[in-house]
Design a protein around this nucleic acid. Structure first.
Lengths: 244, 244
DNA sequence: GAGTGGTCTAGACCACTTG
DNA sequence: AAGTGGTCTAGACCACTCC
């Protein structure tokens, strides 16, 4: 259990309890669909008032990790919130097939990152980085080609993990193996023409119009965890955002 | 003040208080940037415990209507839509010229809106709507072609206003002339090929790749004010968003 | 009826900002 | 020092689900 924030006395207790419960879910203590401990049990276990536990589970609920059912209990959410595929593409709208987008990791490399990556991940001058190349597909069609960068100092051991430990989703794997929780992200979209490599991997013509999505993923403290550049076919692409 | 939910005894009190405060902001009692009443004052005024007021303002904060500053107070958020152009395009990156994007209103019409517009604006079956077509340009290049729909019941007089009263920006004009404040919006992006009209107005070839931006603009109470479909040239397009 | 989450109270103490 | 929001407590009572 790599549950740093749960130990950090600077954070409020409801936050530490929230992170602890999130880590216990991530560690598999409660699996998707399971009913977790009741509010009263959690309060007793953590030695706090019920109201404090309620604040923690309030946050877990808005974060999408659990669902609460009045009179029944609190349940680990089945649909994983960190699956960005569904945020990016209109798929399975007509027939309500629960399509399972696949992920295929093409490569994992330890390398010296380009300056832009170094900057986004706040790496020191000679720090190395891990680069993953991954394809995401659904309905037998490759929709996303992702280039993912991580600090080797933190995520180095990811190179030696069994590929299945990184499936199907990466963010839960970060939490499982490294205790790092992606709390939020900033994204930047633009339109490009595909270069030869991206075009080949997406099954498109070089020069085809593709969407470029840059994403910096941050933990609850605002520290950068992951830098990602994804390219997607534009014809099925859709992106939704709340602006204020 | 049509503050139905604040009277509906079926809703919890924190919800009714939240709606009441939202309505008071929408009515102009507190304007953008203003410090609203303190938690203690609100609790006394509504005759509830401070904790109940806190739940109400928690919701207002996550809804983005107010910001809270520890030790100072709670402030009405200033939704800054003043330059949506800059949210959409990378311009003037090299030389830091504060370029002035221009706006040109091509047409203003009273018409029966298509069903999709009727739905987004929550119009009654025979309500009419106002449609504006507007071009946005910068650096001598047309970058956005906007199709803007408003309820004629609310915004009908916009047809008779001097065009200069709608310049340079529409949202401030809505507030000036109709007292309607855009508080937030939902946007939906996708990629299309330009049809003949859009291509001509953007100075592109028909079939060129363009960005389609749908936006529903809402007031503080969540009522739809404006529905807008914009098309932009994709080569200079960039879109930034915070995800959580 | 027992157990669950949902609402609400009335305080305590702390941390931050301003005068 | 006074006023603000932030955390936390220890209860009360209600509404819902399941046995």
């Amino acid at each position: 259990m790599h549950d740093q924030s749960a130990q950090d006395a600077r954070l409020p207790r409801y936050q530490r309890i929230r992170d602890s419960i999130a880590a216990r879910i991530a560690a598999g203590e409660w699996k998707a669909g399971d009913c977790i401990a009741s509010e009263a049990e959690l309060a007793a276990a953590y030695g706090v008032a019920v109201g404090t536990v309620r604040r923690a589970v309030d946050k877990l609920e808005t974060d999408g990790l659990i669902e609460r059912a009045h009179g029944k209990g609190m349940f680990v959410r089945r649909a994983d919130f960190s699956n960005s595929m569904f945020r990016f593409f209109r798929l399975g709208s007509a027939d309500d097939q629960p399509l399972a987008p696949s992920a295929q990791i093409l490569s994992r490399d330890l390398m010296s990152p380009p300056d832009t990556v170094r900057e986004h991940l706040a790496l020191a001058p000679h720090d190395e980085a891990v680069r993953l190349i991954r394809l995401r597909a659904a309905r037998g069609r490759t929709l996303l080609r992702e280039e993912i960068w991580l600090s080797a100092r933190v995520f180095g051991p990811i190179l030696d993990l069994d590929v299945n430990d990184l499936m199907p989703l990466l963010y839960p794997a970060y939490e499982r193996h490294f205790g790092r929780v992606v709390a939020r992200a900033r994204e930047r979209l633009s339109i490009e023409t595909a270069d030869a490599e991206v075009a080949a991997q997406l099954g498109a013509e070089p020069g085809a119009s593709v969407v470029r999505i840059e994403r910096i993923a941050l933990d609850h403290a605002g520290q950068p965890l992951e830098w990602r550049v994804s390219h997607g076919l534009s014809d099925q692409f859709v992106y939704e955002a709340e602006v204020s």
